[in-house]
Computed example of a mutant assay.
Amino acid sequence: MSDTHTVLHDPQGLIEAELPLDRAPHEALVTAVLAWTNPDLEPRDYEQIALQLTGHARAVAADVRRHAAALPKSDGRGALAEVVLHEADRRLTAPLERTSRCAQNRARLVRALYTRLDRLREPAPPAP
């Protein structure tokens, strides 16, 4: 048996753009995590939940970035998306902690990114 692999070169993210986000299960996870009042999980469980939310946040952020880039420069939604993306990048570079607070912060980030994505998908407002 040989160890071979194929390296995928997709600098424009075209393959990723064709894959739909698996939104429903992640929104259910976000809702559950944000409903926690006094969870009693093991630290490794918090870490796994935060990792799952982090990966999904990165995917949603990439989708937001693609939609924002396709907008005309005069569309203010692009500027708002850039603010959200800058904050997302900052929060995603923070190290994960094995706490409920960390998992809830990642859940809030996923929710904020989906809110922005939904607004970018709306039809453009009429020109004044």
Rank of each mutant, 00 (worst) to 15 (best):
M1E: 15
D3Q: 15
T4M: 11
H5L: 15
T6E: 13
V7R: 14
H9F: 12
Q12H: 11
I15G: 07
A17D: 11
A17N: 08
E18M: 08
P20N: 05
L21Q: 07
L21R: 06
L21G: 01
D22G: 07
R23Y: 06
P25W: 09
H26K: 08
H26P: 04
E27A: 11
A28K: 09
A28F: 08
L29T: 11
V30D: 00
V30S: 00
T31D: 15
T31Q: 11
T31S: 14
T31A: 14
A32S: 12
A32E: 10
A32M: 11
V33W: 03
A35C: 07
W36I: 06
W36L: 07
W36K: 09
N38W: 10
E42H: 09
E42F: 09
R44P: 06
Q48D: 12
I49R: 05
I49V: 15
I49D: 04
L51V: 15
L51D: 15
L53E: 01
T54C: 12
T54E: 14
G55W: 03
G55Y: 04
H56T: 06
A57F: 00
R58F: 08
R58P: 00
A59I: 04
V60I: 10
A61I: 02
A61C: 06
A61T: 03
D63C: 08
V64H: 02
R66M: 06
A70S: 09
L71E: 01
K73N: 08
R77S: 02
G78A: 15
A79W: 10
E82H: 11
E82C: 04
V83E: 13
V83C: 01
V83W: 02
V84W: 01
L85C: 03
L85A: 01
L85W: 02
H86E: 14
E87F: 07
E87P: 00
A88G: 07
D89L: 05
D89C: 02
R90P: 02
R90D: 12
R91F: 03
L92N: 05
L92W: 04
T93K: 13
A94F: 10
L96K: 05
E97S: 13
R98C: 13
S100P: 04
C102H: 06
A103Q: 07
Q104W: 02
R106D: 05
A107D: 00
A107R: 02
A107Q: 00
R108I: 01
R108A: 09
R108D: 08
R108E: 12
L109R: 03
R111V: 02
L113H: 02
L113T: 00
L113I: 03
T115A: 14
T115D: 11
R116T: 12
R116C: 14
L120S: 00
L120A: 00
E122K: 12
P123G: 02
A124Q: 08
A124Y: 03
P126L: 08
A127H: 13
A127C: 07
P128W: 11
P128R: 09
P128M: 05
P128Q: 08
